[in-house]
């Protein structure tokens, strides 16, 4: 077989494969995006102590999330989207479409950034949901923290970590862990921001007055626990201007 045949063969194969793959990617993209959106909605609702399934997540989201708000570094609301009427009250950016990871990167690079948050209203609860994003040792940690109307006490939280040592390792996506956050406070008595962090060996190790700012860390996942602590500190810290307004 001649070289030119090999080249022609390879070229045709590459073009064919490229066409098939890109059309498949294009056709399936809307479905994939929808799945990602549903996962994000579930994360937000789970932080508000609801348990939506993949099927009713969208409906529950529209029922309970009243507003999506985008704020700037000065803590000013620059965009408000009313979920029920599907209309913008202010600005043109939906918080749901803001990628927190990218914005945090902008922040650490010293560039301009925006931050998303969500208003949750149900019969029993009115919560302000703040998304968080950061790193464990292996892979990203993400989740949501819901604050009560005093903008200090945590009403619910939920975290995810895609990759961990199977079985053991940090189980920060377990409910026993995230449920500990309920009732903890992110500001101290004098109104100073102190965040909430996982404490190795248990929150009981802290002095009495500090216990309201700590939860039990997961065993065997020191780095992930520390990573989560830093993440919460870092991300909530960015919202402090807004929260104290």
């Amino acid at each position: 077989m001649s070289n030119s045949y090999i080249f022609r063969y390879a070229a045709i194969l590459v073009v064919l494969v490229a066409v098939i793959l890109s059309s498949a990617a294009m056709i399936l993209k809307p479905l994939q995006d929808k799945n990602i959106a549903i996962a994000k909605m579930r994360g937000i609702l789970e932080a508000c102590n609801l348990h939506p399934t993949a099927d009713d997540a969208v409906q529950m989201y529209e029922q309970f999330i009243s507003r999506e708000v985008v704020i700037n570094p000065q803590g000013e609301e620059i965009s408000i989207y009313d979920v029920k009427s599907k209309e913008f009250v202010l600005g043109t950016t939906r918080a749901f479409e803001v990628d927190l990871k990218t914005q945090l990167k902008h922040k650490s690079a010293g560039e301009d950034y925006i931050l998303p948050l969500y208003d949750f209203v149900s019969q029993n609860d009115t919560l302000l949901v703040i998304p968080v994003h950061g790193r464990g040792l292996w892979g990203p940690i993400y989740g949501n923290i819901a604050l009560k109307t005093d903008r200090n006490t945590i009403g619910g939280a939920r975290f995810f970590h895609d990759k961990e040592t199977p079985g053991l390792g940090a189980e920060i996506d377990q409910y026993w862990f995230s449920d500990q956050f309920k009732g903890k406070q992110i500001f101290d008595g004098s109104g100073k921001f102190v965040s909430v962090r996982p404490i190795k060996g248990g929150a009981g190790k802290l002095p009495e007055s500090q216990r309201i700012h700590g939860v039990d860390a997961v065993s065997g996942g020191t780095i992930t626990s520390n990573g989560l602590g830093t993440t919460i500190d870092h991300v909530l810290g960015s919202y402090v201007v807004y929260l104290t307004k």
Binding site: I20, L21, A25, L28, Q32, I36, I38, A54
Partner: peptide, 13 residues
């Protein structure tokens, strides 16, 4: 890649 794309589209979990 095709299988992966289909899985992501239909059984995301």
């Amino acid at each position: 890649i095709l299988v992966d794309q289909v899985l992501k589209a239909f059984v995301y979990d």
